[in-house]
Design a protein around this nucleic acid. Structure first.
Length: 546
RNA sequence: GCCCCUGUAGCUCAGCUGGAUAGAGCAACGGACUUCUAAUCCGUAGGCCGCAGGUUCGAAUCCUGCCGGGGGCGCCA
C-alpha cells in the first residue's frame, strides 16, 4: 500500500475513534502547493465541522491528537494550520520508496492503471472528408485524439482508433466532379472544389481511371501519409458507403422505427430528437429519398457500440451543435449517453512571426497539415498542439514552433532526456557499476532538488488518471515541462559523477536519474513525442558543434 | 434570439470535482560555463483572476446577470 492510502486509512481510523460521521465526505488528501505546509494535507475537519456544528480548528486538533497516538512511522509531524487544515510532514524515506517503485515499475508500468479493466474503447478522430488534404486545424484533433487513445491504453482500456470516411453524399460528388472537370480542362461545377490540389491530383489521374474510385483513394492516401508523418496510425478506416452496401443504414432506420423514435412529415423521415432534449427534431431521410449526413453517422455509431463499451469522439468546434442529436439517437438505440463521450477542439489560427497565415505560399490554398509538419517537425507539432487545453483556441506560430529556442518547450523537455543519456554514457565510460536499487543507500538523497523530482514522479500516476478522465492530455504536456525544469535544476546543483563525489552518492543519484528517465519517457510517450538520446544545437552556420 | 468555448502578469497560457501567500514559459533587468551538453541554471520585477451581485468558514474556481472575443444554430457535410 502506498503512503497516500496509508494516510487516508489512518485518518479514517482516527475519525472512527472520535465518532465523527464523515460518510458524506470523501477524505480529500492533497499535496499542498507550498511545501511549508507539509507533504500532505487534508481539509476533512473543515469539511465535516459544519454538519457537526463544531469549530473546525478544534475538531482538527482532536483529529490530530488522535492521529498522533497511532501515527504511522513515516509521519514526522502533524500540524494544524489556517482555518483547520491538518498537515502532515513526512520522513523523506517515503520519497525514497517512491524512487524504488518508479524504477521497479519502469517505463512500461509506472503511472499505468487498471481502471479500464480491459473495457473496449473506440477513439474516433480526424474523420475528415476524403475531398482534399488535411489542414492545420485537423492536426490538433489528430494529435489530441491519438494522445487520448494512448492515455486510455495506459489506464488499462483496450483501445481502437477509428477514422470515419464520408465517401458518399453531396460533398464527395462535388469533389469527384471537380476532379474530372480539371482533368478535362472543363469548368469546376457550381459549389465545387477550386483548390490547387485538385489541379495537381487531376494531372496525376490516369485517363482510364474511374474518377470516383481514383479520387477517393488519392485523398485517402494523402490523409494516411500526413498522419503517418505524425506517427498516427488508425486501426479502422470506416467507410460510410460500405454501410449502404451492407444494409446497415437501413437496419439502423428500422431499429429507430421500432424504438418509436422516428416519424414522417412533409415527405421526410425525422428523428424525434426532442424526446431527448434536442431543441428541434432532425431529418434522417430527405423528401427526395436521400439520407442526410445524420442517419449514416448514427448507423456508424451503432456499429461502434457493437465493437466497444465506450466511445470517445473528437470533433471540431463547428460540430458542437450535433452533440445533443447524436446523444438523442444513441438514447433511442438504448445506449447510455455517458458511454459516448464527445470532446470538442477549439479553433487553430496559424501564424508566422505573430502575423496570421491564411494562405499557403506554395499552393495558394489553406495551409496543409503536411506543410506544417514539414516546416516544424513531427515532435514540435505534436507537443505544441498538445500544450494547451483544447477548450482554448490556439495560435500556432510556425516560425516559433520551428525554432530551437527557449520559447519552444519541446526541446527543453527532450533535452532533459538527452542529458540523462549523457550521464548514463559518462557513468559507463567511468566504469561505474550500479548495484541493484535495494542495495543502494537512497537516504543520501536529501537535497531539495532531489526530493522535488521524487514528489513530481509520485504525482505522475494521478496526473495520468485525471488526464484520461477529463480527456485532457495537455495536463501531461504541462507535467512534462514542469518535470524537465525540476530535472535541469537538479542537474545543475547536484553533480553525479566525479572524483569528489562519494561512490554511494553517485549510486543513489544514478538511480534518481534512472527514475527521471522513466518519468520523461512515460510522459513523452503519452504525447507521441520522441525521447532522443542526443541533441546538438546547430550554430549559425548550420553546422553541428557537438 | 438560442447553444458551446473563452476572458488570469507586457505576450502565450496553466490552475476551475471550492482551500492556505494565484503559478509557469517567453519577453525585460541582473548574475552563473575549468564540469555528466549553457538547448542549462539562479535572482529581480511584473496581478481590481473582464465587471457586478449571490452561495460559503473560505470563490480565479460554484450560481445569476451584464460586457468583450471565437464558433455553431439547414430536408449541407
Amino acid at each position: 500500500m502506498n503512503v497516500r492510502d496509508r494516510l487516508i486509512e489512518a485518518i479514517e481510523q482516527a475519525l472512527h475513534d472520535l465518532n465523527v460521521d464523515f460518510s458524506l465526505q470523501k477524505i480529500h488528501l492533497e499535496r499542498p502547493a507550498n511545501t511549508d505546509h507539509g507533504d500532505w494535507s487534508t481539509n476533512i475537519a473543515l469539511a465535516t465541522a459544519k454538519n457537526l456544528n463544531r469549530n473546525p480548528r478544534d475538531l482538527a486538533s482532536e483529529i490530530a491528537a488522535t492521529l498522533e497516538q497511532q501515527s504511522p512511522d513515516f509521519v514526522e509531524e502533524i500540524q494544524i494550520a489556517g482555518p483547520g487544515f491538518i498537515n502532515f510532514k513526512l520522513n523523506d524515506a517515503w520519497l525514497h520508496e517512491v524512487l524504488v517503485q518508479v524504477v521497479t515499475a519502469g517505463t512500461d508500468s509506472w503511472a499505468a492503471h487498471n481502471v479500464g479493466e480491459n473495457q473496449r474503447v473506440i477513439v474516433e478522430f480526424v474523420s475528415a472528408n476524403p475531398t482534399g488534404p488535411l489542414h492545420a486545424g485537423h492536426g490538433r484533433g489528430a494529435c489530441f485524439g491519438d494522445s487520448v487513445a494512448r492515455l486510455y491504453q495506459k489506464c488499462g482500456y483496450s483501445v481502437q482508433r477509428d477514422f470515419y470516411i464520408n465517401d458518399r453524399g453531396a460533398q464527395m460528388r462535388l469533389y469527384v466532379e471537380s476532379l474530372s472537370a480539371r482533368a478535362s480542362n472543363a469548368e469546376v461545377p457550381e459549389g465545387g472544389y477550386h483548390g490547387e490540389y485538385v489541379r495537381e491530383w487531376a494531372a496525376e489521374m490516369p485517363s482510364d481511371a474511374d474518377p470516383f474510385e481514383w479520387g477517393y483513394q488519392r485523398a485517402l492516401r494523402s490523409h494516411r501519409e500526413t498522419l503517418e508523418a505524425l506517427n498516427i496510425h488508425f486501426d479502422n478506416w470506416f467507410s460510410e458507403k460500405s454501410m449502404v452496401d451492407s444494409g446497415a443504414i437501413e437496419s439502423t432506420l428500422t431499429d429507430l422505427q421500432e424504438a418509436r423514435a422516428v416519424f414522417e412529415s412533409d415527405g421526410a423521415v425525422w428523428l424525434q430528437s426532442t424526446q431527448w432534449g434536442d431543441d428541434k427534431d432532425r431529418v434522417l431521410v430527405k423528401s427526395d429519398g436521400e439520407y442526410t449526413y445524420l442517419l449514416p453517422d448514427i448507423a456508424y455509431h451503432r456499429d461502434k457500440f457493437e465493437r466497444a463499451d465506450l466511445l470517445v469522439n473528437v470533433w471540431g468546434a463547428d460540430h458542437h451543435g450535433y452533440i445533443t442529436r447524436m446523444h438523442a439517437a444513441m438514447s433511442a438505440l438504448k445506449h447510455k449517453p455517458e458511454d459516448l463521450q464527445i470532446a470538442i477542439t477549439q479553433m487553430v489560427r496559424l501564424q508566422r512571426d505573430g502575423e496570421e497565415v491564411k494562405i499557403s505560399k506554395r499552393t495558394g490554398d489553406i495551409v496543409e497539415l503536411s506543410e506544417v509538419i514539414q516546416e516544424v517537425g513531427s515532435d514540435a507539432a505534436r507537443f505544441t498542439y498538445l500544450l494547451l487545453s483544447v477548450d482554448s483556441s490556439q495560435n500556432f506560430d510556425l516560425e516559433l514552433v520551428a525554432q530551437q529556442v527557449n520559447e519552444n518547450p519541446v526541446f527543453y523537455v527532450q533535452y532533459a532526456h538527452a542529458r540523462i543519456h549523457s550521464i548514463m554514457k559518462k557513468a559507463d565510460q567511468e566504469g561505474v557499476t550500479l548495484p541493484p536499487v535495494e542495495k543502494v543507500n537512497l537516504s543520501l538523497l536529501n537535497n531539495p532538488r532531489e526530493l522535488a523530482i521524487l514528489r513530481a514522479l509520485q504525482e505522475l500516476p494521478e496526473t495520468v488518471l485525471r488526464s484520461t478522465q477529463e480527456i485532457a492530455p495537455h495536463r501531461i504536456t504541462n507535467w512534462a515541462r514542469d518535470f524537465a525544469s525540476l530535472f535541469h535544476s537538479f542537474y545543475h546543483d547536484c553533480r553525479i559523477i566525479g572524483e569528489d563525489i562519494d561512490t554511494e552518492l553517485t549510486e543513489a543519484r544514478l538511480w534518481l536519474v534512472e527514475a527521471s528517465r522513466v518519468g520523461l519517457v512515460v510522459s513523452l510517450d503519452l504525447l507521441g513525442v520522441s525521447a532522443p538520446k542526443e541533441m546538438w544545437r546547430e550554430d549559425e552556420n548550420g553546422e553541428s558543434n557537438g
